[in-house]
Amino acid sequence: MEQKVEKIVSWLRIQVEQANVEGLLVGVSGGIDSAVVANLIKQACPEHSLGVIMPCKSQSSDQDHAQKVIDVCGIESITVDLTETHEVMFSTIKQQLKNQDSFNEEQAKLADANLRARLRMSTLYTVATNHKYLVVGTDNAAEWYTGYFTKFGDGGVDLVPLVHLTKGEVREMAEYLGVPHEVVHKQPSAGLWEGQTDENEMGTSYEMIDKYLKGEEIPEEDKKIIDAMHKKSAHKRQLPPSPPQ
């Protein structure tokens, strides 16, 4: 694990140098993936790294966990509360759709959640531009393969240092780095709505996805879910298509 950490930290430093920027930042959600990235960028750029906490109708425990991650790893931080911004923007859009009689109640929950992720992305890039930093993503191998991220939201980043690590490997790295126990062992959640968890939404578990990615046998039902998610989310891992010349 020490070698894995050193390899990622070295790679991050090279990215900073090649991009001719000053440092790195990450959105710290209170979850395990962003906690690991916060530690990694702090090691890569001790004097030029930043954690950004962005509550948006979030559970108070998430913000508490995010702050604890910041305190333990010693990274500089700022907090930008997006609750009011989101409320104004989403309610304005929703009202216009209702005026056109085209508002879809069934899709509203997803649209609401995706807007939160995209507001966070916009916030990170605004702060990053101010500091001349790169935005570092938190997606692990399981999330990347299944497309469990918002396109141009938490998927809108400059670097993805965890993309080759399974969720289990991220957890091992978190323990090695000294991430707070309650963050390491909390139920994975994007915090998009009350009671939301990653595994309930996906219909399978990170354990099953990790096994699948490592080529191990898993129940056929889980395999079908994972294959379907991968196929459906292919567009998220590609550049926007264009017509042939």
Rank of each mutant, 00 (worst) to 15 (best):
N130R: 14
T126A: 15
L115E: 02
E84V: 11
R118D: 08
A117D: 03
F103S: 08
A111L: 14
M89S: 12
M121R: 03
M121I: 12
E84S: 09
T92C: 06
I93F: 04
N114I: 05
E87P: 00
E87K: 04
L97K: 04
K98D: 09
A113T: 05
Q100Y: 10
Q95Y: 11
T129R: 14
L124P: 00
L119M: 08
E87A: 10
L97P: 00
R116P: 01
K109F: 02
R116K: 14
Q95W: 08
E84C: 07
F103H: 08
K132E: 13
V88L: 13
F90W: 02
N99C: 09
V127S: 04
E105R: 05
T129L: 15
F103L: 08
Q100N: 10
T126P: 06
E105V: 09
S122G: 11
M121Y: 08
N130M: 15
F103I: 07
T85H: 05
M121W: 05
R116Q: 09
R120S: 00
E87C: 06
K98I: 14
I93V: 13
R120M: 01
R120A: 06
K98R: 11
M121L: 13
A113D: 04
A111V: 15
F90Y: 03
L115P: 00
N114Y: 07
Q100I: 06
A128W: 02
D112R: 04
T123K: 03
Q100K: 06
F103E: 09
I93R: 02
V127F: 07
V88P: 03
L119Y: 04
A128Q: 06
Q95E: 15
T83R: 08
Q96S: 14
T123G: 03
K132Q: 13
S122I: 13
M121T: 04
V88W: 09
I93H: 01
H131V: 06
T123P: 03
L124T: 07
Q96K: 14
L110D: 10
N99H: 11
V127G: 09
Q95G: 10
T123R: 04
K132S: 14
A111H: 12
T92H: 11
S91N: 12
E105P: 00
A113H: 02
T126M: 15
R116D: 02
Q100L: 13
A113E: 03
E106C: 06
F103N: 03
N130K: 15
K94V: 01
N130S: 15
R118Q: 12
T123I: 10
T129Q: 15
L97D: 01
T129C: 15
T126R: 15
L115F: 03
H86M: 10
A108W: 00
S102H: 08
T85P: 00
R120P: 00
R118A: 04
K94A: 04
A117G: 03
L115N: 01
F90Q: 00
K132T: 13
N114V: 10
K98M: 14
L115M: 09
H131G: 05
K109S: 06
A111C: 14
S122F: 12
L97N: 01
T123A: 12
L119C: 07
R118L: 08
Y125R: 11
H86C: 06
K98N: 12
S122A: 15
Q95I: 08
T129E: 15
D101L: 14
H86N: 06
A108E: 02
R118S: 06
N99A: 12
N99S: 13
K109E: 05
H86A: 04
H86R: 07
A117I: 02
S122N: 14
E84L: 10
L119W: 01
